[in-house]
Computed example of a mutant assay.
Amino acid sequence: MTDPELMSIGAFAKLAGLTASALRFYDDADVLRPEQVDPLTGYRFYSESQLVRASQLRRLREIGMPLPDIARFFTVSAQDAARLIDDQVAKVAAEAIGVQRTAAALKASLGEGACLNLCVLPGPVLATAVDQVLATTVRDAEVPVLGGVRLEADPDAISLTTTDRYRLATRTLVPSRPSAASWAGTLAGDDLQATTSRLRRTLMVTLEAGERTLGFRMVDGAVMHCRLLTEGFPDYRLLIGSLPAATHRVTVDKQQILKALEQQAPEKVGLRVAGGRPTVLLPGSTVDLDGTATGPDLTLWFELTTLYPALSHALGSDLMVDLRGPDQPATIRSANDGDLTTLVMPCRDPAP
């Protein structure tokens, strides 16, 4: 006899947010077997305790997880199950990026009228510049333009600029051939990142601006397209122009300060200026840096996740850091080459 506490397939399907046909399919696939099957009628019956698994199954299918992985999900530990979810999300995200790139190429193939040839740049140099500024982008569903890269061209230079509200990076390149005209647009960061491996392998690349995309034409004639974002990019020139004059200037060896941060990887890092010498403050220790410092005694703190990328992507072996106090951005650039400039905001003193 059927247990009276069991539910019919129709009642269970309604509670689980699935269809009866889906439940039959999952039974046949051995990922959600009914609690009981009537031997005479073949009717399937389910228990209330199976609702949790049914709900998980429905959500796993919503993120596109294949049935073999779903079967594993219900047999492994919670940690491994979480890893399966993360792997599936990464796969879906990668597929979405691929679809966006393909769509951009298709739109470009429809014809945007005459493209504007902006300039010619060495591929490896452009790829490195993209890597340097992309560290200052962020994924923000409310402000998607913060994941973009502002590209501005004029006859003498090409500049790439990014910001995530707490940092700002701008990289200037001198084209091999002067820009034919002034132009500005905001490139989708994901699309731009996808071009870097190909850019590194091409000697020269021509930038071609269209109505909806920016094309990167390789020496073999192949073109990679990067979508242009329509949202307005933050007015970074206003931010830079409104900065007060620096009160302190610190010049240090890049590798020494990076090594100090890598050995402990603290959540927050202190930079102290005292007696004309710079010092890094770490949990339980201090590191005297080889370098110079101007200005009165001062200690500022930075989040490691904000400071380290700015330091590591800086050009050259020496860094110049201009400080303006605890409530103003610090400017980080190469002591010998100011083509890459990064602004980073200090954080609160971690001391109680």
Rank of each mutant, 00 (worst) to 15 (best):
D3S: 11
E5Q: 14
K14W: 05
A16S: 09
G17I: 04
Y26G: 00
S49K: 08
Q50N: 00
L51F: 03
L60S: 14
E62F: 03
I63W: 13
Q79A: 11
Q79Y: 05
Q88N: 07
A93Q: 09
E95C: 01
A103G: 10
A104M: 04
A104N: 07
L110R: 15
L110H: 15
P122I: 06
G123D: 01
V130Q: 10
D131Y: 10
L134W: 03
T137N: 12
V138A: 11
G147A: 12
G148H: 06
V149R: 07
V149C: 06
R150Q: 13
A153K: 07
P155H: 05
D164R: 00
A169W: 05
A181I: 04
T186D: 04
L187H: 06
D191W: 05
E211D: 08
R212C: 02
L214K: 10
R217Y: 00
M218W: 14
T230V: 12
L243R: 04
V250I: 15
V252A: 08
D253I: 08
D253F: 01
Q255H: 15
A260E: 09
E267W: 01
G275R: 13
G284A: 13
L289S: 05
W301Q: 07
L304N: 06
T305A: 13
T305D: 15
T306K: 08
D318Q: 15
D327V: 05
T331M: 13
V344D: 01
V344L: 06
M345R: 07
A351I: 14
